[in-house]
C-alpha cells in the first residue's frame, strides 16, 4: 500500500470517528438531564478525541 493511501485510510478513519462523536454530541446537545451530560462526556468526547488523535497520527506517520 502506498504512503498516500495509508494516509487516506487514516484520514477516513479519523473522519468516521469525528463524525460519530459529533453526531452523538449533537443528539444530546439540547438535553437537560444528567444522562445527556454523561453521554456527551463518556461517548461524544472520547469519539471526537479518538478521531482527532488518528488524524494527528496520520500527519506524523507520513515518513513511515
Amino acid at each position: 500500500m502506498t504512503t498516500s493511501r495509508i494516509i487516506d485510510r487514516h484520514v477516513r478513519i479519523a473522519a468516521v470517528l469525528v463524525a460519530a462523536g459529533l453526531f452523538v454530541e449533537l443528539l444530546v446537545l439540547r438535553g437537560v438531564r444528567p444522562a445527556a451530560f454523561l453521554i456527551f462526556v463518556l461517548a461524544g468526547i472520547p469519539l471526537v478525541t479518538a478521531g482527532v488523535l488518528v488524524f494527528l497520527y496520520s500527519l506524523v506517520s507520513v515518513r513511515n
Partner: peptide
Amino acid sequence: VGLFLFPLLCSAVGFSAHMEHSKTTTF
C-alpha cells in the same frame, strides 16, 4: 480545520452548553 479545529471547537461549545444546562432547576 475539519478534523482538528472544528471537532475541538464543537466539543468545547457543547461542553459549555452542558455546563450551563447543569445550573438549571429543570436539570
